[in-house]
Amino acid sequence: MSRELEEEVGTAGLPTGDLTLGQHVGSGEVPRYRGGSRTPGWDDAVDLTKDPATIPDPSTCHVPEDLRAEIEAHMAKYPDTRSAAIPALMAAQKRHVWCTPEAIEQVACVMRLTPGYLVAVAGFYDMLETRPVGRHKVYVCTNISCSLRGADDLMDRVVEEIGDDPDFNVRSFECLGACDIAPMISVDDVYVGPVALEDVPTMVAQIRAGDEVLPEQQIIRRKSVDPNAVST
């Protein structure tokens, strides 16, 4: 699930993704992403000019060879190939940045599932994006333990620093399982923390430059607080 849907009264037209990414094509009544795909959401009717979304036929759906191979490798790991849905969607997302309709169709074609099945799966999980996002994942944990240690301010600071850079996908995230380094951030799957407000510019610069992010604060390098703590 890419974004919590806002439910306040009045927001009848819920955000249906960043339409600035694409242009409006067609009649103008139906907002679309680049590539002609319609934006999905609560408040949208279906596009009656489309065909029903059945399992894509391999003779008409093109899947890049390496993606197909990766998905098939995942499928081979399980007694029931459908188990590979999440890994396969992840693989496609890596390639397309988010689970674009095209990405979903490609997975559907290889896995012999309907795109509907897969988009329902993708929509359920926080890390699978069903709307356009930037390439760099910056998940700021704002759950209880981190917020007790200043995560909300950190989130604001990160948003401020990154601004509207379309290359970023900044989100406040639920507990990431690293409250020992609160407040913490997962930057493209690398856990760092505690992150001070002053660290933010460095961190963002490192992401932009493709460098390692806050190496000293990465959890992977952290020692257990007190392995023999029982002995107090």
Binding site: R38, V46, P101
Partner: peptide
């Protein structure tokens, strides 16, 4: 936030 729908605005 759950809602009933189809893939990418395709009709059912």
């Amino acid at each position: 936030a759950t809602f009933v729908g189809t893939f990418d605005g395709h009709p059912y």
